[in-house]
Design a protein around this nucleic acid. Structure first.
Lengths: 111, 111
DNA sequence: CTCTCATATTCCTTGACAGGCATATTCCAT
DNA sequence: ATGGAATATGCCTGTCAAGGAATATGAGAG
């Protein structure tokens, strides 16, 4: 049971950057600190947040800790998107652009 | 050009609830106030935020304003998800192969 | 024009959170 | 046991955003 909301976890740009990096390969804290140019404590805090959202998994290796992406949780986001994806799927898009044009053009005679 | 970050726009639960409601049909502010049980000014503020993120569109109808969902912007989220979706597909495949291996090798010791 | 209804904007207070800094913890090697 | 490297945690401060209350805008009815 994740103790942190998924949406708020990915709301932070730095955290998204971390996820992006971990998308390629598992990484240690030191590597992330170098790449992000952030202070180590802050990186650790972001990693903790991501962990609380079940977005990363730690592999303890001696004194080092390697963080690996755990993409399953993002399926929740995919599921959340589903109803909306249905909306842009077909010709509704074109209809919507049409309606937008009507709304944005007050002089247009409709009736 | 949206003036508001998409991820921070959908980070708020109330705003997600609004999006969910608008997924069904276009709605006026009053309707949303009733449904959400929130004060009207706050609803208006959330709607403004959603508008700044290009997630909703206003249809002015006399003194009333009807808000309609604008799902195109969520495609950005879909695109952001793409690399990760590939990962959980791979991991599922791996899990499947793993389970198959267990089936083929019942005495395999784990951990 | 005025009154009223629907909605937007402003001000205020409060809570959450990011970043910087100092310090604590954990593990390994010697 | 002790020291050092890698990482985590606590404290502080500034910033931002949400919710509440009061008020301003805007449009139609009379």
């Amino acid at each position: 049971m994740p103790t942190r909301d998924l949406f708020s976890a990915i709301a932070d740009p730095t955290r998204r950057q971390i996820l992006d990096l971990l998308c390629q390969r598992e990484m240690g804290v030191g590597e992330l600190v170098e790449t992000l140019g952030l202070a180590q404590p802050n990186v650790s805090k972001h990693l903790r947040t991501l962990g609380e959202a079940d977005l990363v998994h730690v592999r303890v290796d001696g004194p080092r800790r390697h963080y690996r992406l755990r993409p399953e949780r993002l399926r929740e986001l995919e599921e959340w998107l589903a109803p909306y994806r249905r909306m842009w799927a077909d010709r509704l898009d074109a209809l919507e652009r049409h309606l937008d044009q009507l709304d944005d053009d007050p002089d247009h005679k409709e009736n």
